[in-house]
Design a binder for these strands. Structure first.
Length: 421
DNA sequence: TCTGGGGTCCTAGGACCC
DNA sequence: TCTGGGGTCCTAGGACCC
């Protein structure tokens, strides 16, 4: 039997914004996705007004204005730094911490299992709040799925007071019988519909499924889920980050792009960023895919999607090589006369740089590697777009919208908040 | 004018081989 | 009129997550 907890930050992006702006406390707040497109985080007040996850901002604009909802552009630099602080606060309370997402971590609590774990969890929540002001909920159970479910229960039901401890069999059964099947971690829309057709609508009913039935209806994923709900772990808390398989840099444009030069400019920027990302993880890529497409929400004839995949040999993390490959791809797939709204670059076949296969003709790779390091350093010190290739262009009308972004409070010295006595 | 970005895992089916 | 069987590898696409 293992003892696993999940700690999850409440309305994380909104809580990060509130940490530095007291005016946002107690009022409805929404954080928008890139390009100020969709609502991706909502304060409790905004949820109460019916703002849903993923709602397009421009479609609910009137409602937001009417109720005085504050809309913030997303600020991932800030959220990433706040996550680091949350994890630091949590670490002393667990033997292992697996960062699951930007606002959630699984904790191995096995060594602490003889303590009162609700007290333990509350001490941890208090520590996070002291260090970051961010409120959290905790779920505890014998498997990750049950810890996750306990956490969801704690969010919904005030009875738990922020900590959903499902280790006790009777408590667990009580919660599972009332928990909607579709809200279980790993059950999405498609699976929920198939389950409902069989009359399976609660987590308790999934737990009681026959293994063969689960396998037939879903896949091995659902089969594992049944085991996890029964308290049999199908996945452990893992501290080591698994080797990444792919990487992507994609963006929607602030205004549609109609000419090849502008598209090249955007793609150039994404290629440079992709290279930077590869190098920061010590990886090289063997394959690059570049794509661009028109507005898929418009159901008219003016639709086109271009895509090219290009093998990279030698495998590389050199931004200029990626840029050259991406340009070739764009040239090959380009069609005149369309209004493109999004483009991106995806990298696959990733391998640790020191393990990459060598080729006969690598030539002067040392110099290029030094150039890339120098560029990374310049951009880290003086801001992301200090050293850029001319291909990126200067007008950049396609840049995404971010009309109400908070400062980099914690990561840029000139934006650090000032307190006057 | 306007609808995010970045991941993982699994399966089916085609290509290919002996 | 007939046209094997079984294995591996790769890819595309679906489903799901935050």
């Amino acid at each position: 039997m293992s003892t696993i907890a999940l700690i999850d930050c409440n309305n994380f992006y909104v809580s990060c914004e509130r940490a530095f702006d007291a005016a946002l406390v107690g009022v409805p707040v929404v954080v928008a996705s890139n390009n100020d497109g969709c609502a991706i985080a909502r304060s409790n007040e905004a949820k109460a007004l019916g703002v849903k996850m993923g709602d397009p901002i421009h479609l609910i604009r009137d409602r937001l204005d009417k109720h005085g909802v504050v809309v913030r552009s997303s600020n991932y630099t800030l959220y990433g730094d706040m996550q680091r602080r949350v994890v630091a606060a949590v670490e002393q309370f667990a033997s292992e911490v697996e960062i699951y997402s930007i606002d959630e971590s699984f904790l191995d609590l096995e060594p602490f299992k003889d303590r009162d774990l609700v007290v333990h969890a509350n001490a941890m929540r208090a520590q996070v709040q002291r260090w970051t002001t961010i409120p959290t909920c905790v779920g505890i159970g014998p498997t990750k799925t049950l810890a996750k479910l306990g956490n969801a229960a704690a969010k919904k039901n005030p009875l738990f007071d922020g900590v959903g401890d499902l280790r006790d069999a009777a408590v667990r059964a009580w919660v599972l019988d009332r928990f909607p099947a579709g809200d279980v971690w790993g059950v999405g829309r498609a699976t929920a519909a198939k389950l409902a057709a069989l009359g399976i609508v609660t987590a308790g009913q999934i737990r009681d499924m026959q293994v063969k039935q689960a396998r037939a209806l879903g896949t091995v994923v659902l089969e594992r889920l049944v085991a996890e709900l029964q308290g049999v772990p199908a996945s452990a808390v893992e501290m080591i980050e698994p080797q990444r398989k792919g990487m992507a840099v994609t963006r929607s444009f602030g205004t549609p792009v109609r000419d090849l030069d502008a598209l090249m400019g955007a793609v150039a920027q994404y290629a440079m960023r992709a290279g930077e990302k590869l190098r920061s993880h010590g990886l090289v890529a063997g394959q690059l895919t570049v794509f661009f497409h028109t507005n898929r929400f418009k159901k008219d004839a003016g639709q086109y999607q271009g895509m090219r995949r290009i093998a990279l040999h030698p495998m590389t993390a050199d931004s200029l090589e990626l840029l050259a490959a991406a340009r070739r791809g764009v040239e090959g797939a380009w069609r005149d006369g369309y209004a493109y709204t999004k483009a991106g670059i995806m990298l696959d076949d990733l391998v640790a740089s020191e393990l990459r296969p060598r080729t006969l003709f690598e030539g002067d790779s040392d110099r290029r590697e030094r150039l890339m390091s120098a560029m990374d350093e310049v951009n880290a010190r003086f801001g992301r777009f200090t050293a850029v290739p001319a291909a990126q262009g200067f007008k950049r009308d396609w840049r995404m919208r971010a009309e109400n972004r908070s400062p980099a409070w914690t990561t840029r010295i000139d934006e650090v908040p000032v307190v006057r006595a």
